[in-house]
Simulated scan of single mutants.
Amino acid sequence: MSHAADHRPVSEPAEGIELGPLAELARRSLNGDHPGEIGTMLPPLIDHHVHLMIVGVHALADTAIAGVVDLGAPLELLTEQRSHDGLPHVEFAGTFLTAPGGYPVGRPWAAPGCAREIPVAPRDGRGSLPDPAETAVSEQQAFGASVVKVALNAAAGPVFDRATLDAVVAAAHERGMPVVAHVEGEGMTRLAIEAGVDALAHTPFTERVDDDLVARAVAAEQRWISTLFVTSYGEPAPEREMALDNLRRFHGAGGRVLYGTDLGNGDQPLGVNPAELALLAEAGLGASDVLAAICDPWPLVERDDAVATFVTGPSPTTIDGLADWLASACIVPAEDLEAL
């Protein structure tokens, strides 16, 4: 949901936190449920990394999440979703595109058909037929995908050589589709950045991304989807500390962070995950940064203006209170809210 730049932000007590321009003081319509209730209006909340093939296409229907980005599912799921016109709105990546025998092929959680293996194509320079990368990307788009996902997991099997990855990225960009990469293992973040991948499905958690490479990612306007909670499910772990350090420096250098949970991976709440929000704050994001991460419409450009997020009651006074406050949100028709 778009808000005009001259709308007043939510008033904060002197000791409170600044929620930024996306938050507005609002009152619910006298004609709807909870007439006249005062609270905070926000744009729709988006989880930028979910797997509906694991949790089910309707799992988030009664939550505060208005939109999701499904980052890996059989193409049949895209066909099924077309008949579902309720919330959340779903943007799909389609299948994982991976090297022969690469991740997530053979993983017990990977539903049949959720991975498409792309062989290295002979490059004779004649260009008479589409190469396998172009064919695979075209297939995702034909089924309704708006994002292309590649698996670059050197810790779990083969990965694309640079030429094949370049071919996938080029084919996607020719069709106006951003590319998001699962990066895991030594050198995989560099490979994704140098190949022009648009977003990382996870904050890198298996290698330290040096400052020069962070700067290159920021300069390329790459986005990093957070998924901090699933590095250790709330427990102290080297992977969590690695991810926090990488994201802290990426954000500090001006990088765009997207809220994402990898829902379907382990035990997580349906809807907003307060633990993920708390870890974003631990990585150095302020309240307005956290809201920007969870309200970013990516991969879409425009926000859905038909619905809004509403959080009743006073806004949080500390960054520590932000996660639970936001987890209490609900979705309402935008027309039922009046900005104050």
Rank of each mutant, 00 (worst) to 15 (best):
A5N: 12
H7W: 13
P9T: 09
V10D: 07
E12V: 15
P13D: 10
G16E: 04
E18I: 12
L19R: 00
G20T: 00
A23K: 00
R27L: 13
R28E: 06
R28D: 01
L30Q: 14
H34Q: 15
P43L: 06
P43K: 05
P44V: 08
P44T: 04
I46L: 13
I46G: 06
H48S: 09
V50G: 00
L52Q: 01
M53N: 14
V57M: 14
V57A: 15
V57K: 11
A59S: 13
L60N: 03
L60T: 06
T63N: 00
V68H: 02
V68E: 01
D70N: 10
L77W: 08
T79C: 11
Q81Y: 11
G86R: 08
L87Q: 07
T95D: 08
G101P: 08
G101M: 09
G102H: 06
G102R: 01
G102M: 07
P104V: 04
R107Y: 11
A111Q: 11
G113N: 08
A115H: 00
A115F: 05
R116N: 12
I118Y: 07
R123Y: 10
R123P: 04
R126C: 11
G127L: 02
G127Q: 02
G127Y: 07
D131Y: 07
A133R: 06
E139C: 11
Q141K: 15
A142I: 07
V147L: 09
A154P: 08
A155W: 13
P158S: 09
P158N: 10
D166I: 09
A167R: 05
A167I: 03
A167K: 02
R175V: 06
V179K: 02
V180Y: 03
A181W: 05
E186V: 15
G187E: 05
M188G: 08
T189M: 11
V197K: 01
A199K: 05
T203K: 00
F205T: 03
F205W: 12
E207T: 08
D212M: 11
L213R: 05
R216A: 15
V218T: 02
Q222S: 15
Y233R: 11
P236C: 09
M242N: 12
M242K: 05
M242C: 15
L247F: 03
L247Y: 01
R248K: 13
F250E: 03
A253L: 10
G254P: 06
R256A: 11
D267V: 14
L270P: 01
V272S: 02
N273M: 11
L277A: 08
A278Y: 07
L279I: 06
L280P: 06
A281H: 14
A283E: 04
G286N: 12
A287Q: 07
S288W: 04
V290H: 05
I294W: 00
C295V: 01
D296K: 05
W298E: 02
E302A: 14
E302H: 10
D305N: 14
V307S: 04
A308L: 13
F310G: 03
F310I: 04
T312H: 14
P314H: 09
P314F: 01
I319C: 07
D324C: 10
D324Y: 10
L326N: 04
A327S: 13
C330E: 13
I331N: 05
V332D: 07
D336A: 10
A339G: 13
